[in-house]
Amino acid sequence: MNPSFKFFLALIISIEISLKSSLLTNLLIIFFTIIYLIYKHIKVKNLLLTLLMPLIAAFTVFATLYWFAPQPNLQNALSLSSRIYVYTLTIYCVSIGTTATELARSFEQNFHLPSKFAYGVLAALNIVPRMKEAVKQIRTAGMMRGVYLSFWSPVLYFKAILVALNSAENLAQGMASHGYRESAKRSIIVPVPVQKSDWLKSIVILFLVNLALFTLK
């Protein structure tokens, strides 16, 4: 499916289950998203981590609404806490098999996102690994001088900000040297087409979700 369609499909489903409470619908979405992830050959370790990471947040919501509420309602508590798993799993379904580059290209081509935003997001994502490496180098250099820079040290982040500003300047110069112009029309190197099957799948999925929302409790 087209990356943009996957993203907006997950977004619309998340908004709809936020507006209407339906425990059975949440459970069905969770079930089918897990089936989809298994179909995509996700590692068992990653699947278990995905199910365990939202557990604290889901348990907190459940405990607050069921054990500490003036009028506890088990179904309502389960419905609201299960939403966290719906949000997590639907976003995971979007991210699996879709890179940030593909998503940015799809937004630019299919939904006319300005190229400066698309390339800006890609630049920010690609600079994250360099920033992690720069932080490690700064901490190592500090320890060689007998200065320990902790994780919350302001000096560490001040130096990291300086590295980020330098990297941003180098990136801007590199893009300009390769002929990037903000107002110029750009050619498409890797097309991301929208097919009829994308519309069909999206409509069918949204129809089934809405049908479940308004018929199941």
Score class of each variant (00 low, 15 high):
Lys6Gln: 11
Lys6Pro: 12
Phe7Thr: 02
Phe7Glu: 02
Phe8Arg: 07
Phe8Ala: 03
Phe8Ile: 06
Leu9Asn: 13
Leu9Ser: 11
Leu9Glu: 12
Ala10Ile: 11
Leu11Met: 13
Leu11Pro: 04
Leu11Ile: 04
Leu11His: 04
Ile12Ser: 10
Ile13His: 04
Ser14Leu: 06
Ser14Trp: 01
Ser14Cys: 11
Ile15Trp: 14
Ile15Glu: 13
Ile15Val: 14
Glu16Pro: 02
Ile17Ser: 02
Ile17Val: 15
Ile17Gln: 09
Ser18Val: 06
Leu19Met: 14
Lys20Gly: 03
Lys20Trp: 07
Lys20Gln: 12
Lys20His: 13
Lys20Arg: 13
Lys20Thr: 10
Ser22Gln: 10
Leu23Pro: 02
Leu23Arg: 04
Leu24Ala: 13
Leu24Met: 12
Leu24His: 05
Leu24Thr: 07
Thr25Ser: 10
Asn26Gln: 06
Asn26His: 09
Asn26Asp: 10
Leu27Thr: 00
Leu27Ile: 03
Leu28Val: 07
Ile30Cys: 12
Ile30Gln: 08
Phe31Ala: 12
Phe32Val: 09
Phe32Gln: 12
Phe32Trp: 14
Phe32Leu: 14
Thr33Ala: 13
Thr33Lys: 03
Ile34Asn: 03
Ile35Asp: 01
Tyr36Asn: 15
Tyr36Trp: 09
Tyr36Met: 12
Tyr36Lys: 14
Leu37Arg: 06
Leu37Asn: 05
Ile38Gly: 10
Ile38Phe: 08
Ile38Arg: 11
Tyr39Cys: 05
Tyr39Met: 10
Lys40Asn: 15
His41Val: 10
His41Ile: 07
Lys43Tyr: 13
Lys43Glu: 08
Lys43Val: 05
Lys43Trp: 10
Val44Asp: 03
Lys45Pro: 02
Lys45Met: 08
Lys45Phe: 14
Asn46Asp: 15
Leu48Asn: 10
Leu48Asp: 06
Leu48Ile: 15
Leu48Cys: 13
Leu49Ser: 09
Thr50Asn: 04
Thr50Val: 02
Leu51Asn: 02
Leu51Ala: 07
Leu51Met: 12
Leu51Asp: 05
Leu52Asn: 07
Met53Val: 12
Pro54Ala: 02
Pro54Tyr: 14
Leu55Lys: 05
Leu55Arg: 01
Ala58Thr: 02
Phe59Leu: 06
Phe59Trp: 00
Phe59Cys: 02
Phe59Gln: 00
Thr60Tyr: 01
Thr60Pro: 00
Thr60Gly: 09
Val61Ile: 15
Phe62Asp: 00
Phe62Trp: 01
Ala63Cys: 04
Thr64Tyr: 08
Leu65Asp: 12
Phe68Cys: 02
Phe68Arg: 04
Ala69Cys: 01
Ala69Glu: 02
Ala69Pro: 01
Ala69Leu: 00
Pro70Gly: 05
Pro70Glu: 04
Pro70Phe: 00
Pro70Thr: 01
Gln71Leu: 08
Gln71Cys: 01
Gln71Trp: 03
Pro72Met: 03
Pro72Phe: 00
Pro72Gly: 07
Asn73Tyr: 01
Asn73Asp: 14
Asn73Lys: 08
